[in-house]
Simulated assay, not measured.
Amino acid sequence: MQADHRAATAKGAATRGHIVDRALEMVRVGGFDGLSIGSVAQTAAMSKSGVFAHFGSREELQLAVLDAAAERFTREVFVPALRAPRGLARLRAIVAHWLEWLRLSEGGCPMVGAAVEFDDRPGPVRERVVFYEERLRAELVRAVRMAVESGELRADTDAEQVAFELFAIALASHHDFRLLGDASPRGARALERLIDSHRV
């Protein structure tokens, strides 16, 4: 009985993961507004009731997709960057992996898309977007402060301001990648200019 329960749990988790994967693909192209239980069921080759059994509402599905996108961002941007030494090397690694994530995200970054769609729409989805963006900003501030502590950036460096400018570089790069098809290294050059302005 216990083995049957574990097998059923594993199967349920695999099905839920399959649904979220398909929904994330849809969001990259059509945004969160186009996401519904019915459209995901069709894409995932499932019945509506089958999808509904895992996600009781469209909002619950949207939240799960946001969580999945954030988990992938962490895995592909921050985890590899942690291999670099603390200081400027790690800060550069974070931005380099971030720009690569934006460049290679088919259809665009789902987190950027969600921020645009829900910036003026109160509710749980907007709150989740804000949570992940604030967490990202906090990690950027932490990385900048490590570069100050390592003696590579000046002691009077405003870490919050630098984090804001790093975010601005990423958003401008995303805009150029997706809308203009411009993959030039302007983001990387902007990063170096920002670092140079705060060097010891």
Rank of each mutant, 00 (worst) to 15 (best):
141 V>Q: 08
141 V>E: 04
141 V>C: 05
141 V>W: 07
142 R>G: 11
142 R>C: 09
143 A>R: 09
146 M>Q: 11
146 M>P: 08
146 M>D: 13
146 M>F: 12
147 A>G: 08
147 A>D: 13
148 V>E: 04
148 V>S: 01
148 V>Q: 09
149 E>G: 05
149 E>A: 08
149 E>F: 01
150 S>N: 02
150 S>Y: 00
150 S>W: 08
151 G>C: 03
151 G>M: 03
151 G>N: 02
152 E>S: 06
153 L>E: 00
154 R>A: 10
154 R>D: 04
155 A>G: 04
157 T>E: 01
157 T>I: 05
158 D>F: 10
158 D>N: 13
158 D>R: 15
158 D>E: 10
158 D>Q: 10
158 D>V: 13
159 A>D: 07
160 E>M: 08
161 Q>D: 05
161 Q>Y: 08
162 V>T: 07
162 V>L: 10
162 V>F: 12
162 V>Q: 03
163 A>T: 14
163 A>C: 12
163 A>N: 04
163 A>G: 07
163 A>E: 04
163 A>Q: 09
164 F>A: 08
165 E>C: 06
167 F>P: 10
167 F>H: 10
168 A>G: 14
168 A>C: 12
169 I>V: 15
169 I>G: 08
169 I>W: 06
170 A>N: 10
170 A>I: 07
171 L>I: 15
171 L>Q: 10
171 L>A: 13
172 A>P: 12
172 A>D: 12
173 S>Q: 13
173 S>I: 08
174 H>L: 10
174 H>N: 13
175 H>I: 14
175 H>E: 13
175 H>Q: 13
175 H>V: 14
175 H>F: 12
176 D>W: 14
177 F>V: 02
177 F>H: 02
178 R>L: 15
178 R>P: 01
179 L>N: 09
180 L>P: 01
180 L>V: 08
181 G>P: 04
181 G>M: 06
183 A>H: 11
183 A>W: 04
184 S>K: 05
185 P>L: 03
185 P>S: 01
185 P>A: 00
186 R>V: 00
186 R>K: 05
188 A>I: 00
188 A>C: 00
189 R>F: 05
189 R>M: 11
189 R>E: 08
190 A>M: 06
191 L>G: 02
192 E>T: 15
192 E>A: 06
192 E>F: 02
192 E>N: 11
192 E>D: 12
192 E>I: 12
193 R>H: 14
193 R>Y: 09
194 L>Q: 09
194 L>S: 08
